[in-house]
Amino acid sequence: MSQTAVLSHPVTEADEQAAPALKVRGYWASVGYRLRYDPVTMFFGLVVLLIILAAIFAPLLAPFDPYKESVIGRLKPFGWKNHLLGTDELGRDLLSRLLYGGRVSLLMGVVPVCVATVVGGSLGIVGGFAGKRVNTAIMRTMDVFYAFPSVLLAVAISGAMGGGIGNGMIALSMVFTPAMCRVAETATAQVKNLDFVEAARATGAGTLTILRYHVLGNVLGPVFIYASTLVSVGILLASGLSFLGLGVRPPTADWGLMLSTLRQSIYVNPLICALPGAAIFITSISFNLVSDGIRAAMDVRM
């Protein structure tokens, strides 16, 4: 009868059982697996990790007080009197200032991105999933911000609000949110029209359940990748703000600010002046390469 029909075609079961099945990995596990064997990404991931650790443990690692000035010890070369990376134009230990500066720069790079991811991401998902009217309302508002070049917008906002770390972070968050919203909206709109969302509705699931179980997982990937590229943009923009005197105020240690103040001494000791720039460069390049690696690993069909 019909039951034998079911039994007589156990597709691939026989095959699968005959030979030991290959390990079946979940999606994220297989992404991790591929990442593990990507030497470039692994290397730069390590660099990122070291930079973060160095910033966190700056008080322990810094050999000198980053704010201690010295009139006689200005702009000294590498290794001068235990100052491993020399001193700056006020005689402060450069290594210590770089370590402390990393804290501010990373903070400025990471916090606004997190805020933008949560705010912009949610708005984007709502905008992408909701009907035309809500979508238009959200996306047109975002477009107003999006129309300005990000640097200009950041400068304008923090110029209006005044300097300081807090205001700088608010400015950067406002710069990143529309872009994040865009990415989330596009990803959601793509997923929304696929049949599996409709299939979930057909099983009787409500909108929130569908968003949570079916949409979020598919949107998070692109959003996360984009966020990781934004981190390096954030560091650069924050440095730029400080450089223009709109972000962090002296004497706080910050890479952008250090670059700005050391600029005048470029003819005295060019090597030392280049150090904060190098720190910014290495950090942002590392973040970029890591997010590229993650992007590649996440593309299952590659």
Binding site: Y27, L194, D195, F196, A199, G217, N218
Partner: peptide, 14 residues
């Protein structure tokens, strides 16, 4: 309902 497109009717991340 069983949908037309077996490819897009399953959530790729589930």
């Amino acid at each position: 309902m069983v949908f037309q497109d077996s490819y897009s009717s399953l959530n790729p991340r589930m």
